[in-house]
Nucleic acid binder design. Structure first.
Lengths: 199, 199
DNA sequence: CCTACCGATCGGTAGG
DNA sequence: CCTACCGATCGGTAGG
C-alpha cells in the first residue's frame, strides 16, 4: 500500500502495485481501476506508464521467473556435492518467495493467463527450472548420496511441490527466517517421515 | 464438453460445466455466457437452474470439500497403524484428484473468491483436513514408526504440499493409475531422497 | 496525471 | 430455455 496523494509514481511502482493485486485477487479479479486506486490515481492514468493490463502481467511474471532463474545460476556456479547444490537451490527458492512473494505468487498462479507467446516463454523457463532439479537428483544418485532407485523426473516434481506450495502458506509476519524454513524443507526432502538425525 | 443442441440440462450439468470452466480459466475468468456456451444454451438461461454465479462457485467447491472430507472419514474408520492410515489418506486424496479434477482444482485455487461466510466454512473444512494429517503424524511418532523429532504441524504442511500440487501436474491422459501415483508419493513422503527399499 | 468519453462485456431480470 | 433488455463495470483512448 502506498500513501495516496503523494504525487507522481514511477513505472516500477505501477508494476509493483499490479503484482500485489494480481497475487491477492488474481489477474481477472483485478481491474486497471483497482491498480490505480492502490497508487492513488485513476485507472486511465496508468496508460501513461504502461501499454495495457496484459503488459503488467507479463512484467510481473517475467520478474518472478527471472528471480527463480537466477537461483539456478547461482547454485550451479557455487558447485559442491549434489546434496550441497540441492540445499542451495532450496534455500534460494525460499529466499525468492520470502523476498518477492507477490511476484512468486503471480508467477505460479497466473501464468496461464499470459498472452500465448509470453506463456510459452515462461513455461519454458519453468521447465528449465525443473530440469535443474532433475539434474541435481540424478547427480546425487550417481554420487550414491541418494537412493539408487529414485526417478529423477518424479522426484523433482515432488520436491518442487513442497517448494511451490510455500506461496500458499507463507505469511510475511511469520517468525521463521528463510534459512530456517529451507532447513526444515531440506530435512523433509532428504528423509521424509523416517527422518534421520542430521539436524 | 457436451454436444450442443441435445435439449434440456439438469442443474447438475450446470454445476459440472461451471466446475470445468472455473478449473480451467478461474472464477473471474469465466462468465455466465461461457458456462452457457459449454452447455449449448444462453448465459441467461442458467438462471432457471441456479441463483447466480456465486452459488455455482459455492456448489462446485462444496462438492470438492465434501469429497476430501469423506476420505478422512473413510481412512479413520479403516483403522490400522499410523503408517497404514497415512497410506489410506494419501491414496484417497489421489483418487479424489484423479476422479474429480475440476472440483479439486476449483476447491484449491478459487476458494478465496467465495462469499465471506462460505469461505469461512470451507477454510474450516481445510483446517480439519490438515488436522487429520497432524494427528496421524503424531500417532506415528508415538508408535515410533516415524522419527521422534518430527514437528507434526510442519510435516503435515509438507505432505499436503505434495498432495495438493497434484492438481497442477496431473493430466487425465497420464498412464499411471491413482494407486501407482499414491505409492510413489508415499515412498517419497516416507523416506525422501534417502529412500529405503520398501518398494 | 486528469477530464471526458468509447464500445464491449459483465451479472442479472421480466416475461413468455 | 429464449427474447429482449438493464445498469454497472470493463480495458482502453483523445486531448490536454
Amino acid at each position: 500500500m502506498i500513501t495516496p496523494g503523494t504525487g507522481a509514481r514511477t513505472r516500477d511502482d505501477v508494476v509493483a502495485a499490479a503484482g500485489r493485486l494480481f497475487a491477492q485477487r488474481g489477474f481477472h479479479g483485478t481491474s486497471m481501476r483497482d491498480i490505480g486506486d492502490e497508487l492513488g490515481m485513476l485507472g486511465s492514468s496508468l496508460y501513461s506508464h504502461v501499454d495495457g493490463k496484459n503488459q503488467l502481467l507479463v512484467e510481473v511474471i517475467s520478474k518472478g521467473a527471472a528471480l527463480f532463474g537466477q537461483v539456478v545460476v547461482d547454485a550451479t556456479a557455487a558447485g559442491g556435492s549434489a546434496e550441497e547444490q540441492l540445499r542451495n537451490l532450496v534455500t534460494g527458492h525460499v529466499r525468492v518467495v520470502v523476498g518477492h512473494l507477490d511476484e512468486a505468487r503471480t508467477f505460479l498462479n497466473e501464468a496461464r493467463f499470459l498472452p500465448p507467446d509470453d506463456r510459452k516463454r515462461i513455461i519454458a523457463m519453468r521447465d528449465d527450472y525443473q530440469s535443474a532439479y532433475r539434474a541435481v537428483i540424478a547427480a546425487g544418485v550417481a554420487e550414491d548420496s541418494f537412493a539408487p532407485d529414485l526417478d529423477p523426473a518424479v522426484t523433482a516434481i515432488f520436491i518442487l511441490s513442497v517448494l511451490n506450495a510455500m506461496i500458499r502458506w507463507y505469511r510475511p509476519c511469520g517468525r521463521r527466517s528463510a534459512v530456517e524454513i529451507a532447513d526444515q524443507m531440506c530435512a523433509f526432502i532428504a528423509n521424509g517421515l523416517h527422518r534421520s538425525d542430521q539436524r
